[in-house]
Design a protein around this nucleic acid. Structure first.
Lengths: 129, 129
DNA sequence: CGTATTCGATTACACCTGTAGCCGTTACGA
DNA sequence: TCGTAACGGCTACAGGTGTAATCGAATACG
């Protein structure tokens, strides 16, 4: 059985996503740890991070464990699930669910590096088999 | 710190995007025309569409021309610009700006049809030249 | 033992978004 | 000509989001 996915309507916002990234990168972390990792980049203060963490907890995206008297936070959803969901949403909304036009767009705008191209070719060859 | 004035470059929300799609599909259109094209699908009423159109106008994404007593609305931004911008935002946010991981994700989740694969291969061949 | 500190929890608040109602003007049909 | 339907413009309002201050309990330090 697949693990519980996010409920519809409990979308993770962009600011919350930055916090998730920190937790995916390393977990469990305390609120202060998370702040160390994201506050500077986003110009946030600690209360902001705490709010975002609370919201993520109430959305079921992050879980807590007590460590002494504080909490440690850890992700409850997989990054790949989130990323996959967001990607599919974009492809559905902008490209009628087809990935090829997205690819074409990235290609047209030179958003594809040589490395990207090589990697994609490798993936294609892989899938071919 | 004062709030910034709305200018070209404000983000288009999801609901607004649906309206933009109608205008990209055919323009100029009256508010009623737009409603004909999007109200049923989104379960909106005409006032909703009018609000969305106004917001798009104030965001500089849609322009108006008087047609008799009404207005006709037409897009001021190109669909490809919007789509490209959104795509790049996603790739930046989720994949560190690299398209290959996005591609890998779509591939892993079987979000790529055979047609997609064939098309992407063709594009790659094209770019190789 | 009492006080400063440290957390999480609660509260705040303005802006954005989705969704829609009401109002004043006006063109058109009776 | 007069009422009325149609339109655009303004208003509304709840829920989400970004951003943060404050409160109260637990703790560590002196």
């Amino acid at each position: 059985m697949a693990k519980r996915k996010q409920a519809v309507g409990d979308r993770i916002s962009e600011a919350e996503h930055a916090v998730m990234e920190a937790l995916w990168d390393a977990s469990p972390l305390s609120a202060a740890d998370v702040c160390d990792r994201v506050c500077a980049a986003n110009d946030w203060s600690i209360p902001t991070v705490k709010t975002l963490l609370s919201r993520l907890v109430s959305k079921g995206a992050v879980g807590t464990e007590p460590e002494g008297r504080k909490f440690l936070y850890h992700p409850l959803i997989e990054r790949s699930d989130y990323v996959g969901g967001e990607s599919r949403r974009l492809v559905d909304r902008l490209f009628g669910g087809r990935a090829a036009p997205l690819f074409a767009h990235l290609a047209e705008n030179e958003a594809l590096s040589d490395d990207d191209l090589a990697e994609i070719e490798a993936l294609l060859r892989e899938m071919r088999k």
